[in-house]
Design a protein around this nucleic acid. Structure first.
Lengths: 151, 151
DNA sequence: ATACACATTTGTATAATACAAAAGTTGCCG
DNA sequence: CGGCAACTTTTGTATTATACAAATGTGTAT
């Protein structure tokens, strides 16, 4: 059973990576995760961003540096609280996320199209049950789905 | 639907990472992937190893360097063909893989235990159909499952 | 024998990552 | 008010993963 889940999982990761390279743009997968989080949650403090990505704050700082250099995100000072830094997508960043997401969705849709319709329905129910059975405080499914860009 | 698959996928990755850290041992996830491949396929040439892990040959060389230093793999010269290098697990490496795999299986089993038995069965069938529908030359499910240690 | 093809390693560069320490900011308490 | 504690982010430093290009050594076929 785990075998089946893992295979499906690998397939999705492959689709995800392919959609990214297909669009061109020299963005790594971790960087794209950051863009996705910003697209789904809007502007965020650096620390929140690090938490959502489950990385060290310094990692988020440096990843943001590179994305600023690529003109995909902006860093804003917050006049209210000057120790906080707000990160948000630029217009270019928004467009990139949109392009990749569109492509990815169409690839997934094509796969689902090829599935036996009967099985399509049971897939969702079974996976939900699996995730629920494995549910734990640290795993917030809606958050994670968003972070990966599949919400 | 993709949301459901992705959530399940994240859960498995989390289980995998947790099993690894629980065993202690200062091994990274990519390194562990290499150990898993060696455990399931036996001794391999450096190039084969790189192919199976889908990384550049030089990456495999350097990863193997670190695992040799940690006494988890050995590098053997092949007297038959001296341009090839054979990499294989040490006894310590085998034991590490065994420990982590055991722990992981028991975590997965615990999750499956908590699932509605009806859904357990449909999960496998649905996922197989999904993977088949997305099947492509580059994605060999048995290979990938092995590479991730879920075979 | 010579040249081409193959397998691995080395040189070099970048990204992701963590931990520890520094620096600036805010708020509170005496 | 003044200073100290708690917080946010950044910087310093180190390691790993990664790729591409070039070098090295090895086998093979013309």
């Amino acid at each position: 059973m785990t075998d089946a889940v893992l295979t499906a999982s690998r397939l999705l990761v492959a689709v995800s990576a392919r959609s990214l390279t297909a669009v061109g743009e020299d963005v790594t997968l971790p960087q794209f995760r950051m863009l996705i989080v910003l697209a789904s949650r809007g502007a965020l403090r650096a620390g929140e961003l690090a938490d959502l990505l489950a990385v060290h704050p310094s990692t988020a700082t440096r990843m943001a540096d590179r994305l600023v250099a690529a003109d995909l995100v902006d860093r804003l000072g917050n006049p209210e609280n000057r120790r906080e830094v707000i990160v948000q997508l630029t217009a270019t960043g928004q467009q990139l996320v949109g392009d990749v997401t569109r492509r990815r969705r169409s690839e997934i849709a094509a796969i689902v199209e090829r599935m036996d319709p009967q099985l399509r329905g049971s897939l969702v129910a079974a996976l939900r049950a699996f995730a629920r059975a494995g549910g734990e405080p640290g795993v917030d499914s809606s958050r994670d789905a968003g972070a990966l860009g599949w919400s």
